[in-house]
Design a protein around this nucleic acid. Structure first.
Lengths: 243, 243
DNA sequence: TTTTATAGACGAACGACGTTCGTGTCAAGT
DNA sequence: ACTTGACACGAACGTCGTTCGTCTATAAAA
């Protein structure tokens, strides 16, 4: 072996701390989701994720092509939490509804992740799995293929849009404030604003403020869901749409 | 009058060019919409708009509170182009559809402006005007107030989501390339990708690639629109939903 | 008319962003 | 023992939204 001299002091220490867990795509995505849950989608920047990992932003680019890809990977990772049902043809409509509620549950438990989904053709394995079950359910219920093909699209659009709508003011709550309180405050402002509108120009809006602001998020979701399923079911040949 | 001496040369010229049109909120919003139409929503930055106006970004803040407000103002300005129908109670369903198509026309003629709308409670005069007509039509058709209140929300969500979905790849076309060509190319990639999927895991998707990618944007829109209107109409008491 | 007040325009600067480049370092292959 | 290649990472570039202090041109007051 060579002479065992001490490392020259001008050759600076290789590392301050111990070597972190080796960077992989999985830990990057998992960390990004953690930041998402804690601070919202806007806060998920390359730098922020890297910081959480104790490294620099540039290090991420070896495992992820960029921010866009990271966001898609986050979406797919989140969709892994969606519990998929065993297809029971006799309950296809109810199962479709349950699946929708399940997706909504996962969406709303991850802040504004739904923003990533809208305007994105699903390619991740978990996203595809959900689409697969949707198609299976509709085909089992006798929905024609062409209709089912359109319906998955519409279905996804609805889920995305609803989840985004749900997170409007939650996402904009200033840090440190109670999101629910902030939401209620804003909501009351909107009500007051609408009531103060000129009655001659907006008679229906002014007269229906309570109806417009009445329903909770769940009511709105169930309303649209009901309409959607009924509409899809109405395309099943030789069967009554509504019981 | 004072002595007509020439301006001292050390007092530098007040202005290089002639005085621009005085900055107002209107011209700022109009300019922003122009940038939107030409380069997409992403390109609409404070600096970019200011540059177009021949000034600096800071100058805009005297007329607009920030980027968020500018985007809302842009949305409302665009909605001014929506032509509103005279309410004819006997044709309320058809008129609701026509209104939806009209909104879609305006949306798609302004790139990805729809992204601004989703997750935003409408407060601008033109946005409210559209909501007002929607409510008027539904009430004229006998839709109960509580249902109509929910439906405007769902209706808006649908229009927003559809418009966004429409502009996925158009918005991401690299500058200088033909958007349509780029779209077709991407579309073919997706088809090939889906066909190459493992059949045992995604049997329906693989078997229905043509159905999933078959419908045009217009088909998808009309499909969802039909379902939506039918669903709303089904809540009209003492009347058959479908003729 | 002269002075003062004020609204608005604007350059510079701050901090944060996504991404690229060049360099450094370690471990496996030869 | 030497080479090679993958990857970590600091620094830098150009962009973003927004704020600050200053300056000017006009309107109001004297």
């Amino acid at each position: 072996m060579g002479t065992d001299i001490p490392t020259p002091p001008w050759r600076k220490q290789r590392r301050a701390g111990p070597v972190r867990q080796p960077l992989t795509q999985e830990v990057i995505v998992a960390t990004a989701v953690r930041v998402l849950d804690g601070e919202g989608l806007e806060a998920v920047s390359m730098r922020r994720v890297a910081q959480e990992l104790g490294t620099g932003a540039a290090s991420l680019y070896a495992h992820v092509s960029g921010k866009e890809e990271l966001r898609e990977l986050m979406l797919d990772a989140v969709f892994a939490e969606v519990e998929l049902p065993e297809v029971d043809p006799s309950r296809w409509q109810e199962q479709l509804k349950e699946l929708a509620r399940e997706v909504r549950r996962v969406y709303t438990s991850h802040r504004d992740i739904a923003k990533v989904s809208l305007g994105l053709i699903p390619t991740g394995p978990n996203l595809l799995a959900v689409a697969e079950v949707q198609l299976a359910l509709m085909r089992a219920g006798g929905v024609p293929p062409s209709i089912a093909g359109l319906a998955v699209d519409t279905f996804g659009m609805y889920l995305d849009a609803d989840a985004i709508e749900d997170t409007i003011y939650v996402g904009r709550t200033p840090p440190g404030e109670d999101p629910w309180e902030h939401f209620q405050e804003r909501f009351e402002q909107i009500r007051a604003f609408m009531k103060a509108l000129p009655v001659d120009r907006y008679p229906h809006i002014v007269g229906m403020v309570d109806d417009l602001t009445g329903g909770s998020g769940d009511d709105r979701f169930e309303f649209g869901l009901e309409i959607l399923i009924r509409g899809i079911a109405s395309y099943v040949p030789d069967a009554d749409a509504d019981p």
